[in-house]
Amino acid sequence: MTTASLPTFADPKAFRAWRSQPQQWLPIALDIARSHGLDVASSHVFSTGTNLVVGLGDHLILKIFPPLLRAQFVSERGSLKQLAGRLHLPIPEIIAEGERDGWPYLVITRLTGTLGSEVWPSLPEAEKDRVLRQIGETIAAVQRAPLGPLAEIEPRWDAFMRAQMQGCKARHTRLGLAPKFLEGLDDLLRDAATVIPMDAPPVILIGEYIPENFLLACHDDQWSLAGLFDFGDVRAGWRDYDLLGPSAFMAAGWPGRVRSLLEGFGYAKPDFALKRRLMALMLLHHASDLNSHICIEGWQDKAGDLVELQDLIWAE
């Protein structure tokens, strides 16, 4: 019996529509798994995420990347190889890799723990402080690892930042950022060119330290960080960029949480220069959308401009 081929897609929308119907691609995924001698008896599809993702039992995951997202495969594969054995925190291990019909794939180990997004909202405040400190420590640990081949990922930091600066005002206008914040963008972008280091030694940036991308585990009634996964958006650049996800989605303007995250990372309390740099980076992040991402109730009414907003997000 011949197995169907993986098709070619010209745009992400067509791929997403096809991916949403697993009956079209699951037989091919299982054939790939069998070609590596893997057991497919208890496989299951992960419906969320960007690529084709299939769990193979409780211990392995197959990720298949469409050619138009090959850059994510390059980032994921390079990051898992580069960080292997360098962190105190578990990350997936590559078991097998290959390509089918021009689609690269990875078979990786499945981590144990509970998805952060399932646990985070209900954690007591002291637990949130501790987890954020651990996240800050993990970001610092990742950034101490040598870049290796990840240094070659394009675009390079200075080109990426300049492109983001050029498109920043149009992006946030399109996304509906309130006029009172848009008014301060020109001043902030002028500052950004000097407050964001463009040619400092780059470090590994994961890009998205958010609850959907890490696992938590409970020991002795205390929740702790238990695993980190999803390295498809890795780039090389200035270290502060990776503070944005946990700042927006998790610290949410709580002074204790902000302090825990920054101290774990190795910073003292935020001064104006750090807040200004983080505000600029938040507006320039590759996925930036303040209306969707700042998890502070009523923040649009609590801040009158971008300077007040940075004080609200990184409260002392």
Score class of each variant (00 low, 15 high):
W18A: 02
G266L: 04
P246M: 06
K13N: 13
L38C: 05
H293M: 14
W314F: 15
F249T: 08
W157Y: 13
P12T: 01
L60H: 09
R34V: 00
S247T: 08
G266Y: 10
D289W: 10
R190Y: 09
I28E: 12
R257P: 05
W103M: 03
R171M: 03
W25Y: 02
A17H: 15
V40Q: 12
I32M: 14
P66C: 11
V131C: 06
R110Q: 14
H293I: 03
H172S: 05
T112I: 04
A140M: 00
G237I: 03
L115E: 00
L56F: 05
P146W: 12
F229P: 00
R77V: 08
W238L: 09
I196T: 03
G113K: 07
R86L: 11
G98H: 11
A141R: 03
D191T: 06
K302E: 02
F214V: 03
R144P: 01
Q164Y: 08
R162K: 14
A41T: 14
P146A: 15
A163Q: 10
L111Y: 08
P179A: 13
S122E: 11
K128L: 03
V107W: 04
A315I: 00
H293E: 14
L274Q: 12
A315E: 11
A248I: 05
V45K: 00
L132M: 13
P211G: 12
Q310G: 05
A178N: 09
S20C: 12
I94H: 11
P149K: 07
S42T: 14
L283R: 10
A41W: 10
K302V: 01
L185R: 06
T173N: 07
V74T: 14
L188Q: 01
A252I: 01
Y209S: 08
F265Y: 15
D289G: 00
L281P: 09
L261R: 11
P90V: 01
M279F: 01
G232K: 06
S224G: 15
S35A: 15
Q310P: 03
P197N: 00
R174H: 10
W254I: 10
D221I: 07
L216I: 00
F9C: 06
W25M: 06
A315M: 05
L115Y: 07
R276W: 08
Q166A: 15
I153T: 13
D240T: 01
Q164L: 04
A4Q: 12
Q21F: 09
L284N: 10
V40E: 04
D311Y: 14
V195N: 08
V107L: 10
L132A: 11
Q143L: 03
H59N: 09
T112A: 14
S42M: 12
P92W: 13
A226Y: 07
V119L: 03
N291F: 00
S224L: 07
D221V: 08
V40T: 15
F15A: 02
R86G: 12
V54A: 02
Y209P: 09
P202T: 06
D101N: 15
G266P: 04
G37D: 03
E76D: 13
D242M: 08
L87P: 02
D31H: 15
G176M: 05
G184H: 10
V53L: 04
I28A: 15
V74P: 00
T48Q: 15
F65A: 11
R239S: 08
T3G: 05
G49Y: 13
W120H: 07
A140P: 01
L30A: 14
A170M: 02
V307P: 04
Y241D: 07
V53A: 09
L182N: 02
T138N: 02
E208I: 10
I313V: 15
L243Q: 07
F272M: 10
A251W: 10
